[in-house]
Amino acid sequence: MNKNKASLGYDFIKGFIQENPTFSLAVGMCPTLAVTTSLVNGFWMGVAVIFVLTFSNVFVSLLRKVIPDEIRIPVFIILIATPVVIVELVMKAYMPAMYNILGIFVPLIVVNCIIFHRAEAFAYRNPVLNSAMDALGSGMAFTLNLMLIGGIREFLGTGQIAFGSAVFPKVPLFEPAAVMLTPPGGFITLGALMALLNIAVARASKRKKSESQVG
């Protein structure tokens, strides 16, 4: 029981670090760059992905003993497309403005590699609860990544960050560069973030090494 609990926690946590969708697996690049012109857009895209991912992972896991191996890909596609249509209809009805901003990237969640990757690599082989935790972990990590990239781009591009009615005020003497909101800004932001992460990882492993040499 205890062991099972520990592995549930691990399945949730691993999405944030070892199997971080953006920074270590580099999947789902298209929405990661396309919708991150602001923090709020990133947030809602992330919420949509969390819903779709949890739905598909749970159902793939529930049906994993029934689905024949040869036709699993088409079955996955249906299990992924169904929640995507639900998200599309709900968003269109209740948040039409956000639906228009995210545009074709809402239906394109269907072909988001993160969801396929989790279904194939995890949910098809693991029990339901673990799959649900895996989906929540990966989905939340993806949302955080989108919010981080969106926040950076929004701040550099407009000089402020707006979330709902709360707006971080403009910083004096800071001249925003609108290019950060265009596609080149997205590519360069993500590239720079990944390079910074590499530096951090390299430093951490170096420190570990020197510590172990001293000890």
Binding site: V179, P183, G185, F187, I188, L190, G191, A195, N198, I199
Partner: peptide, 22 residues
């Protein structure tokens, strides 16, 4: 540089090409 090798450099190069296409 080791820190840029792989994805970071690929993304930054894509960004510069994208700037040209802009």
């Amino acid at each position: 540089p080791a820190t840029l090798d792989g994805f970071p450099l690929a993304l930054i190069s894509t960004g510069l090409m994208s700037l040209a296409f802009l």
